[in-house]
Computed example of a mutant assay.
Amino acid sequence: MENKTNCLLICNMSGARCISVLSSFVRLKNEIGFSREDAEPYIQSYMSRCLGKDQKTFRVQDTSKERRMCKIPCEQVFDEIFDGKIKEMKTGNLRYI
């Protein structure tokens, strides 16, 4: 919890970007052309960890004016990252384009 708070403070004070595990996939795709095929072993490893903790969804911000966070099935989020439908926010959260 403390690291997350520090990260948010850095974002608010200096404009630095935070990164989450999910946003790292967005960056790898965008910055070095990491494909879904390249990412698959890492996705499966992360998914097994999430499912082991009974996590079946990730939160992604929708495109509405209210900017609601929606619970999206984990596998769908990875599909949409590599389909270019999701972008990373400064907070490390994900948002639909």
Results as ranks from 00 to 15, higher is better:
C7R: 03
C7W: 08
C7T: 06
C7P: 02
C7V: 07
L8M: 15
L8T: 06
L8C: 13
L8G: 07
L9Q: 02
L9D: 02
I10E: 14
I10D: 12
I10V: 08
I10W: 08
I10C: 12
I10Y: 10
C11W: 10
C11R: 05
C11M: 14
C11G: 07
C11I: 07
C11P: 00
N12I: 09
N12A: 15
N12F: 14
M13I: 07
M13K: 07
M13P: 00
S14T: 06
G15Y: 00
G15F: 00
A16I: 02
A16T: 03
C18N: 07
C18R: 01
C18S: 08
C18I: 02
I19V: 15
I19G: 04
I19Q: 14
I19W: 13
I19L: 14
I19E: 15
S20E: 04
S20T: 09
S20H: 03
S20G: 06
S20A: 06
V21P: 05
V21Y: 07
V21E: 11
V21W: 04
L22P: 01
S23T: 06
S23F: 11
S23L: 11
S23G: 09
S23C: 09
S23I: 07
S23D: 08
S23Q: 07
S24R: 03
S24N: 03
S24G: 05
S24P: 00
S24V: 03
F25V: 03
F25P: 02
F25D: 02
F25Q: 01
V26K: 01
V26C: 08
R27D: 12
R27Q: 09
R27E: 12
R27A: 08
R27M: 12
R27L: 15
L28F: 14
L28S: 12
K29H: 15
K29R: 15
K29F: 08
N30R: 03
N30V: 01
N30Y: 00
E31Q: 14
E31W: 09
E31L: 15
E31F: 10
I32N: 05
I32E: 12
I32H: 06
I32P: 01
I32V: 13
I32L: 12
I32R: 05
I32F: 13
G33R: 05
G33S: 10
G33F: 13
G33T: 05
G33E: 11
F34G: 04
F34C: 14
F34T: 04
F34H: 05
F34L: 13
S35Q: 04
S35K: 04
S35A: 08
S35D: 07
S35L: 11
S35C: 09
R36D: 10
E37M: 13
E37Q: 12
E37C: 13
E37A: 14
E37H: 11
E37P: 06
